[in-house]
């Protein structure tokens, strides 16, 4: 479904991503794990069209994303839940969801999807008219996920959904990710919380200073000595 081939990205003269290649198949949860600054967010930004690539190629459902504008990428069914949630804090909960559905015109279906989001996140429904900036961290993460779901993505990129959340909430968010995947959305998950990410993913890639150093089935990587030492706390 998503095919990234020998991707190279530069910020000025800094070589941020070196020859990164990976793929995501339909129906999977794939995770990219790695430390701070390993290039996880850069990879996602590049796929979403926010950062331009120097060489290599990205294909989504058979078509290249090279040079495609970010809004067209969302229209093609690839949407992202950004790092740090980045909800529109000056808009209400409802308006945030409306912005998630920005690319769509099918009014009746959109209405159904609001209900789908509210049934998944009942707390958002209680706060529908509230300005999003007043929500708690966990609620904001739910809103960020709900907002992205509103574009009906085939593939959802998630950038550190556990960031800054209490352990109990992290568990809840990961349950939600599994559910979303079960209902038919493919997921590419970027995480520093390798333990949680490996527990729900089918396959994983390990990024280190802009390179992919390991890849394999998530269950196997979770047993890998190198991974255990570096990312799972021994």
């Amino acid at each position: 479904m998503l095919e990234v081939r020998s991707l190279n990205v530069f910020y000025g003269t800094i070589h941020a991503l070196h020859d990164i290649s990976f793929h995501v198949q339909e129906g999977e949860i794939v995770t990219l794990i790695g430390a701070n600054g390993a290039g996880k967010t850069s990879t996602l930004h590049c796929i979403s069209g926010l950062v331009s690539l120097k060489s290599g190629d990205i294909h989504f459902t058979g078509k290249t994303l090279k040079g495609v504008s970010p809004n067209r990428i969302v229209e093609s069914g690839l949407a992202q839940v950004p790092e740090g949630r980045r909800i529109f804090a000056n808009l209400t909960v409802m308006e945030n969801l409306e912005m998630g559905a920005y690319i769509r015109k099918d009014r009746n279906m959109i209405k159904q999807d609001y209900e789908m989001v509210f049934s998944r996140f009942p707390r958002l429904k209680e706060r529908i008219r509230q300005v999003a900036g007043t929500l708690s961290g966990g609620e904001q993460q739910m809103l960020a996920i709900g907002r992205t779901l509103m574009s009906r993505p085939k593939l959802m990129l998630m950038d550190e959904p556990s960031m800054g959340l209490a352990p109990l909430l992290v568990k809840e968010i990961f349950e939600i990710i599994k559910e979303i995947n079960r209902s038919g959305t493919t997921i590419l998950l970027v995480e520093q919380n390798a333990h949680m990410a490996l527990s729900i993913a089918n396959r994983a890639y390990v990024l280190e200073t802009g390179r992919i150093v390991l890849e394999g089935a998530a269950r196997e990587l979770a047993q890998n000595e190198q991974v255990k030492k570096a990312y799972l706390g021994g």
Partner: peptide
């Protein structure tokens, strides 16, 4: 609403598919 969204966070607006 898109104007307010773009003025708050242009990057996030791009990621929502808003034609900035």
């Amino acid at each position: 609403k898109a104007m307010r969204a773009v003025s708050f966070d242009r990057g996030a607006a791009y990621l929502m598919g808003i034609n900035v």
